[in-house]
Simulated scan of single mutants.
Amino acid sequence: MWKDRHMMISLADVLSAAERIHGRVRKTPVIELGREKPTSRGSVWLKLEQMQHTGSFKPRGAFNRILKAMEENRLPETGVIAASGGNAGLGVAYAAARIGVQARVFVPETAPPVKVAKLRKLGADVVQVGRIYDDAYRAAARECEKTGALFCHAYDQPEICAGQGTLGLELLEQIEGVETILLAVGGGGLFAGVATAVQGHARVVAVEPECAPTLNTALAKGGPVDVAVSGVAADSLGATLIGDLGYQVAVETRSESLLVSEDAIREARRFLWDDCRIAVEHGAASAMAALLSGAYKPERDERVAVVICGANTDPSDLAG
């Protein structure tokens, strides 16, 4: 239906996305870690994408998907549909509201009430169905077939990935000579976009929880396969299958995937709060966990950027 079986993404796509969404998303800041630096080797910067609209990078891709459809006269009167109880749904709802089109977001009945409330506050028509994300996804697919609405995939569409890749273009401008970018991977949309945007300038290292190794398993098996997902980061890194685009880009760029433990993720989240006063969700702390735990060890004088990609968390346990 909405999925192109010959999906590809190029630097030209990312550059077009940057022009298309300019002025609609924030160019989020970077900060260099000083005395609180988690490693004595190299320089470390944080890309503060948790300060993006809705608290994550997702509006970048959502704006690009919807605006490109409008340019090509492919946006139906029935609006847009997404399946997500988390950051992707919020990104689509926000973009649709700002553009002036109707958004319907399908979420499982188990979705956190706070996120459902945020979706409704943004003007989305929220449909709760089933117990897990796949139930909501299938319901969204049926609705798209019925109404002809434009589907906004959480992570596996070229326009979505290209929009997320604009974050990579910003990093190249903001950190002179950046060599390595660490970012968390769930379905792989952010990874696919950023790795495409910075290819030839910097390498991207994927970081995944041990309890949600979608890309890591795909690289080991020679293709995307379903994996069991659990753990503290499952609310934001809960995809059970790496996207086709994320896998293709990982193979093409010869990227690596590192796994981090639950304890390492919790410790990284505490570090970001205690030492940097940055409140993030567990999934967003995964990239920092790779540095703190030693899963990624920079070379001496290496210039490393860590993407802090989401802040939609319950702050009550940050000091715990």
Rank of each mutant, 00 (worst) to 15 (best):
M8R: 13
V225H: 12
A268L: 08
L90V: 04
V251W: 06
G34R: 14
R266H: 08
V204C: 10
G222C: 06
R131I: 09
L67T: 03
K27A: 15
K47L: 08
G85W: 06
E179Q: 15
P213F: 10
R254M: 13
K47G: 05
S255F: 12
V207L: 08
G222K: 05
P108H: 12
L48D: 09
S10A: 07
L171R: 01
T110W: 09
W45A: 10
L258Q: 04
G165Y: 07
R24A: 12
H22M: 10
E256G: 14
S257Q: 07
R41D: 12
V198H: 10
E145H: 03
Q52T: 05
C152S: 00
L169Q: 05
P224K: 01
M70T: 01
A239C: 06
T110C: 02
G23S: 14
R26N: 09
H6W: 06
G130T: 14
V232K: 03
S40C: 04
G79D: 13
R254H: 15
T180M: 07
T54E: 14
Q174G: 07
I21N: 05
E208L: 11
V126A: 02
A162M: 03
T78P: 00
K115G: 00
P38Y: 14
A319M: 15
A141K: 04
V129E: 15
A218I: 03
